[in-house]
Simulated scan of single mutants.
Amino acid sequence: MTPPISQKTEGALRSAMKRLLEGTSVHTDGRLTIANLAREAGVSRATANRATVVLGEFRAAEARFRSGSVAGLKARIRKLEAELRAARGGELAELRVTVKTLAQHIQILALEGEEQRRVIAVLEEQIARADPKVLPFRPPS
């Protein structure tokens, strides 16, 4: 039979387990493994493996964490997709306003162009009446 672990070791393993599960590990990369649990607690893997009660709790907590993190990730993905749809909707509305504004500007420019052509025609006519030789080049109408 393997000798039991001390209260101090059990406490160290429980503290290490808490840090690993909270994502605040100090001595490891934070992966939820028995080796990291032992390293985080500052005990050997053999000592950690003798702590069967703590290991059982760690494995159960790890399983809950993994299943919870999958569900949490799925919820986060749904939330991000909804935010993306909302952002897209806002961008589309903004784009529609921009297109409408551009169409109005184009219309104004077309009207201004027509007005300028009329003014040019009037000026050409006045020049031609004054002296037909002054306007040697006549642009096509």
Rank of each mutant, 00 (worst) to 15 (best):
P139E: 05
L123I: 12
P139R: 08
E91C: 06
T98Y: 01
Q116F: 05
E115P: 04
G89S: 07
E94A: 15
E125L: 10
P132C: 00
E94Y: 03
E125Q: 14
Q104G: 12
Q104I: 07
R85E: 15
E115S: 15
T101L: 09
A103P: 01
L111K: 13
V119A: 15
G113V: 08
L111G: 09
P136N: 05
E114I: 03
Q107M: 03
L109F: 07
R118N: 14
R129H: 07
L92V: 11
A93L: 10
A121Y: 07
A110I: 06
Q126E: 09
L92I: 08
R129L: 12
I127V: 14
I106R: 06
E124L: 09
A87C: 08
L111N: 09
R138P: 01
D131W: 01
E112Y: 11
L102A: 05
L84T: 15
V99I: 11
L95K: 03
G90W: 03
E112D: 15
L102T: 07
I106P: 00
H105L: 06
R129D: 11
V97W: 00
G90P: 02
L135R: 04
E112V: 15
V122G: 04
H105R: 11
R117T: 11
A103Q: 14
H105Q: 12
E114W: 04
V99Y: 04
I108W: 09
L109I: 05
T101V: 08
R118M: 12
A130K: 02
P132L: 00
I127N: 02
L111H: 10
E91H: 09
D131S: 04
L123H: 08
V97P: 00
P132V: 00
A110T: 13
R96I: 01
R85F: 12
R96K: 08
V122Q: 14
E91D: 08
E94N: 13
T98N: 02
E115F: 14
G89E: 11
R88C: 04
I108A: 12
L109A: 14
L102H: 03
A93F: 05
R88H: 12
R85G: 02
A128I: 02
E124N: 12
P140D: 13
F137H: 11
A121G: 11
A87E: 13
E83G: 10
E83L: 14
A121D: 15
L111F: 06
L102Q: 04
E91I: 10
E94G: 15
L111V: 09
G90A: 05
G90S: 06
F137P: 00
P140M: 07
A93I: 02
A103S: 10
R118P: 01
T101I: 03
R129M: 07
Q116W: 06
R96H: 03
K133V: 06
V134F: 02
F137D: 12
L84A: 15
R118L: 15
L84I: 15
A103I: 00
